[in-house]
Each structure stands twice: as C-alpha cells, then as structure tokens.
Simulated scan of single mutants.
Amino acid sequence: MRIRAMQAEDASTVAALHAASWRRAYREILTHAYLDSDLEGERRSVWTTKLSVADGSLGWIAFVQDVPAGFVFVRPREDAQWGTLVDNLHVQAAHQGHGLGRRLLHTVGGWTAVHTPDVGVHLWVFADNVAARGFYQRVGGREVERTDRAAADGRWLPEYRVAWSSPDALTAATRG
C-alpha cells in the first residue's frame, strides 16, 4: 500500500471512489433516486472544484497494488472549537478491514501534528452509518455532538460530530 498527496488531476479517480463508497455505504441513508443518478458525474464536478481551489484543503489517495483504494480529504482549522475537519474518508469495500482507513487517518494525524498542532481534528458521520461510527470509536474518536445537517440528497439527516482532542491523539489511536 502506498499513500500520496492528491493532485488536481485526481478529480475523476476520487469521484469514482466517492460515488462507489456512497452507493454501498449510504444505500439505506440517502435516497435511492439520488444514489442512482449520475452520482459519479456530480462528484466529479465537486472534486474538480475542491482540488482546484487554493484554500488550504488537501487530501491523500491510497493505492493497493497501484489501484486506487481509498482517500481522505481535510480542511485545516475549519472550526474554531473543533479544529481541522476530515471532510471525506472513503475506502473501497474490498479493502475495508485491512487497515487502510486507519492508515489514512494516521496520515491526517501526522500532517496536522506538524501544520495545525494546536487544534483538534473532527468529522461528521451519519447517525445511521453504524459501521463507520464503530470504526471511528475504535480509532479513538469521541461522539461529541448530534445534530441534523443538510445531506447531499437535499434532506436534513441526523449526524454525529466525532472528535479527537489533538493531532497527537489521532496519531496515537491510529498507530499500527
């Protein structure tokens, strides 16, 4: 496995990974109409914009045998109280349970320890995404807030904010 920084040219690759992940993990969370639409095209548009804007956001793609297998994207210092936002973390189904998500979060922890060491790290997860919530708990994340948030399909859905108190806490929890 290797992990490298995302580049603007990765928008289509990231969009394909993102759409596949949402179609599998969110089948009973987001509407079928949304998931069965041109989701990959919509995500490509989103990622083309995200990867071309110089706002300090950045991400990493993980490869297994030179095939894209997952990615993580962060927005440093996104929240005054909670710190850096893990905006996206997705791992292809075939690679889940093999430490890839943990390694991607460890990469985030290492980067934030150097670049934003004075703030925590957080993310949002759908309340109904029980598998992801369990994963975040296993890697030291604490559910610190529950609220309804706007979902990509236009509805408001309950989500949890999961937080790590510091980059060091995230790095320590994802070691190994």
Rank of each mutant, 00 (worst) to 15 (best):
residue 1 M to S: 12
residue 2 R to L: 14
residue 2 R to D: 10
residue 2 R to H: 11
residue 3 I to Q: 02
residue 3 I to R: 02
residue 4 R to Q: 13
residue 5 A to F: 10
residue 6 M to C: 07
residue 8 A to Y: 12
residue 11 A to R: 02
residue 11 A to C: 13
residue 15 A to I: 00
residue 18 H to I: 04
residue 18 H to L: 05
residue 19 A to W: 02
residue 22 W to S: 01
residue 28 E to G: 15
residue 29 I to D: 02
residue 30 L to K: 07
residue 31 T to E: 13
residue 34 Y to G: 03
residue 38 D to I: 04
residue 39 L to C: 05
residue 40 E to R: 14
residue 43 R to Y: 02
residue 43 R to M: 11
residue 48 T to C: 07
residue 55 D to C: 04
residue 55 D to W: 03
residue 56 G to D: 11
residue 63 F to C: 14
residue 63 F to R: 03
residue 64 V to G: 00
residue 64 V to M: 09
residue 67 V to Y: 13
residue 69 A to I: 04
residue 70 G to C: 02
residue 72 V to F: 04
residue 73 F to W: 13
residue 74 V to P: 00
residue 77 R to K: 09
residue 77 R to S: 09
residue 79 D to G: 08
residue 79 D to N: 07
residue 80 A to N: 09
residue 82 W to S: 02
residue 83 G to E: 01
residue 83 G to K: 01
residue 88 N to C: 10
residue 89 L to W: 00
residue 89 L to I: 09
residue 92 Q to H: 09
residue 93 A to V: 14
residue 95 H to E: 05
residue 96 Q to S: 11
residue 96 Q to N: 11
residue 99 G to N: 12
residue 100 L to C: 10
residue 100 L to D: 01
residue 103 R to H: 15
residue 107 T to P: 00
residue 109 G to P: 00
residue 118 D to H: 13
residue 118 D to G: 09
residue 119 V to L: 08
residue 120 G to W: 05
residue 120 G to E: 06
residue 122 H to I: 07
residue 122 H to K: 04
residue 125 V to R: 00
residue 125 V to L: 06
residue 125 V to Y: 00
residue 132 A to S: 11
residue 132 A to P: 10
residue 133 R to E: 06
residue 135 F to L: 15
residue 141 G to I: 00
residue 147 T to H: 06
residue 147 T to Q: 09
residue 149 R to Y: 03
residue 150 A to N: 07
residue 150 A to Q: 14
residue 151 A to M: 09
residue 151 A to Q: 09
residue 152 A to Q: 09
residue 152 A to H: 07
residue 153 D to V: 15
residue 153 D to G: 14
residue 156 W to S: 15
residue 156 W to E: 14
residue 156 W to L: 14
residue 159 E to G: 02
residue 160 Y to G: 01
residue 160 Y to V: 03
residue 162 V to M: 05
residue 163 A to S: 15
residue 163 A to C: 06
residue 163 A to D: 10
residue 167 P to L: 03
residue 176 G to A: 08
